[in-house]
Each structure stands twice: as C-alpha cells, then as structure tokens.
C-alpha cells in the first residue's frame, strides 16, 4: 500500500488515494487530499466534509449522492441540499471527492 507523509506522520492510502485507517483522519490529511483533488477548501467544503464524517459515524456507510443531497437539505437548508451546489463544490462528484477528503472509504456502488 502507498504511504503519504505529512508533517512527519505516515498515512496509509489505497491505490486510488483513499485513507485506509479512518481513525487517522485529521485536518492535515484532509488538506492534502484536497490538493490532490484540486479542490480549494472553503467553509462550504468543510461543512460537507464534516457532515459526511458524522453520517459515517452514525450509519457506517458513505451515503449515495441522492441521499446526501436530501440529508444536507434537511440539515443545512435547500440552498445547499441540491446537486448544483454540491457539484460546484466538488466538480468531480461529491461522492468521490468529498468522501476522499473526509477520510471515508470508497463509496459502495461507486464504480
């Protein structure tokens, strides 16, 4: 497995760059993943990343985009709970990119 070293700490990632051990996640690794994904992290990005981490802690899965969109809408309002907003934040897909930055495993059913 490939290793990533940030600030003197080693992180194991899979061949697509997803963090192997969720418990290792911190803001350093999130920022590193964001640079890799060419995402410039703003408050809006962090909101989604933190939401995903909470969702995972509660349900032990990363949600499908449709489910994420609906759940974000419920929690953060309809102006954020829509595809347009989420794809603006994560142009290559909120599933793939936001999960990676949030340190979650590769989403179920995502090819």
């Amino acid at each position: 497995m490939p290793m990533v070293n940030i600030a003197g700490k080693d992180y194991e990632v899979d061949e697509e760059g997803y963090l192997i051990d969720l418990s290792q996640w911190n803001e350093d690794i999130a920022k590193y993943m964001a640079v890799e994904e060419k995402v410039d992290l703003t408050e809006g990005h962090w909101e989604v990343v933190n939401f995903l981490r909470e969702y995972y802690a509660e349900y032990q899965i990363a949600p499908a985009v449709r489910v994420l969109t609906k759940a974000i809408g419920k929690k953060l309002g309809p102006d954020k709970g829509n595809n347009k907003y989420l794809y603006e934040l994560f142009p290559y897909g909120p599933a793939k990119q936001a999960c990676k930055i949030a340190g979650l495993p590769k989403p179920t059913g995502c090819i």
Binding site: A62, P63, A64, V65, R66, V67, L68, N83, G93, P94, A95, K96, C99, P107, T108, G109, C110, I111
Partner: peptide
Amino acid sequence: MSDMDDMD
C-alpha cells in the same frame, strides 16, 4: 455513495 445518481 454513488455518483451514478438516480441511475435507471
């Protein structure tokens, strides 16, 4: 999570 949103 799937980016294959509402696929049918």
